[in-house]
C-alpha cells in the first residue's frame, strides 16, 4: 500500500479531480446546473409557442430570451461550489487536504468556467435551433456565430463572478443574493443615474449577454454603446479582478 502512494501530491490537477467529484456528488450543484442547461431551450419553445416576440427582434434574440435567467443560475452554481463548503464545514477538510488556497480556487474556477461554457454553448445553440425551427420566417435570423461562443463565455464569467462572491461572502444565501444583485441591479437602477446609466448597466455580465444575443432590449442608451465582444472582455476583466481579491481574502483569513 505504502509504495502505491509514494508519488502522491496535492497540486492543481489533483485539486481539479477532487472538485469534480465534489461537484457531481451534491444535488444542489447538479440540479442548478441542469436548470441552467434547460432554461434557455424552454425559453425558446415558450416564446415561439406564445408568439410573444416583438417585430423588430431577431430569431437569436427571441430564442435566448431566458438566457438572462439561465445566466443567473450559472452565477448561483459558481457561488455554491464554495459556499456549500462553508455551510457544511468541508472547507476545512478541503484546505487541510490542499493548503494551496489559490490552487483550490483555481481548480474550482476552471471547473465552473469550463463546465458552464460547454453547457451554455450546447444549450443556447439548441435554443437557437429550436427558435429557428419554431418561429415564423418573417423574423430576421441575426448572427448566431460567433455570438454563441461569446454567450457561452458570458455564462462562464457569471459562474466565476458567483465563485468570487461566494468566496468573499462564505454564506450561500448571502452570496446568491449578492451575485444576483450584481447581475440585476445595474440594469434596474441604471435609469436612476441619468447619463451614467449606460456605464453602470454596461458593467453587468447581463449587459454583455444581451448584446451578444442581439436582442432589441440591448439598446446603446440602456447598456452602453460598447460592442458585444468588448463588453464581454470588460466584464471578464472585472470578474477576474474580483476573483483575485477573493483569493487574497481566502489566503489571509483563517478557515
Amino acid at each position: 500500500m505504502t509504495n502505491d502512494i509514494i508519488g502522491a501530491r496535492a497540486g492543481f490537477r489533483q485539486a481539479l479531480a477532487a472538485e469534480w467529484i465534489k461537484f457531481r456528488s451534491v444535488r444542489s450543484t447538479v440540479w442548478t446546473t441542469a436548470a441552467t442547461a434547460v432554461v434557455p431551450i424552454a425559453g425558446a419553445v415558450f416564446v415561439a409557442a406564445t408568439g410573444s416576440l416583438q417585430d423588430d427582434d431577431t430569431v437569436i434574440g427571441g430564442s435566448l430570451t431566458l438566457a438572462v435567467v439561465a445566466q443567473m443560475l450559472a452565477a448561483v452554481v459558481g457561488a455554491m461550489t464554495i459556499t456549500g463548503e462553508y455551510g457544511s464545514g468541508t472547507i476545512r477538510t478541503t484546505i487541510a487536504a490542499n493548503p494551496g488556497r489559490a490552487t483550490v480556487v483555481a481548480a474550482k474556477a476552471t471547473l465552473v468556467a469550463g463546465l458552464l461554457y460547454v453547457i451554455a454553448l450546447v444549450s443556447c445553440s439548441l435554443a437557437v435551433l429550436a427558435g429557428d425551427a419554431l418561429l415564423p420566417a418573417r423574423y430576421a435570423t441575426g448572427e448566431p456565430l460567433p455570438a454563441l461562443f461569446g454567450i457561452a463565455g458570458s455564462f462562464a464569467v457569471a459562474g466565476l463572478l458567483g465563485l468570487a462572491v461566494g468566496t468573499l461572502v462564505r454564506h450561500s444565501a448571502g452570496a446568491v443574493t449578492t451575485v444576483i444583485g450584481l447581475l440585476l441591479l445595474p440594469s434596474l437602477f441604471g435609469p436612476l443615474f441619468g447619463d451614467a446609466r449606460r456605464w453602470i448597466a454596461g458593467l453587468s455580465p447581463t449587459a454583455a449577454l444581451e448584446k451578444l444575443t442581439q436582442t432589441s432590449d440591448a439598446t446603446a442608451e440602456a447598456v452602453g454603446s460598447l460592442g458585444p465582444w468588448p463588453s464581454l472582455w470588460l466584464v471578464a476583466g472585472c470578474t477576474a479582478a474580483l476573483l483575485l481579491v477573493a483569493v487574497g481574502a481566502l489566503r489571509r483569513r483563517d478557515v
Binding site: A8, A17, A18, I21, K22, S25, S28, A97, N98
Partner: peptide, 18 residues
C-alpha cells in the same frame, strides 16, 4: 457535506492528494 455519500467524500479526498 450531508448530501454526499461517505464513499464520495473519501474519493474526493483521495483524489485531492493523488
Amino acid at each position: 457535506h450531508g448530501g454526499r455519500s461517505a464513499h464520495q467524500h473519501l474519493a474526493a479526498l483521495a483524489a485531492s492528494n493523488g
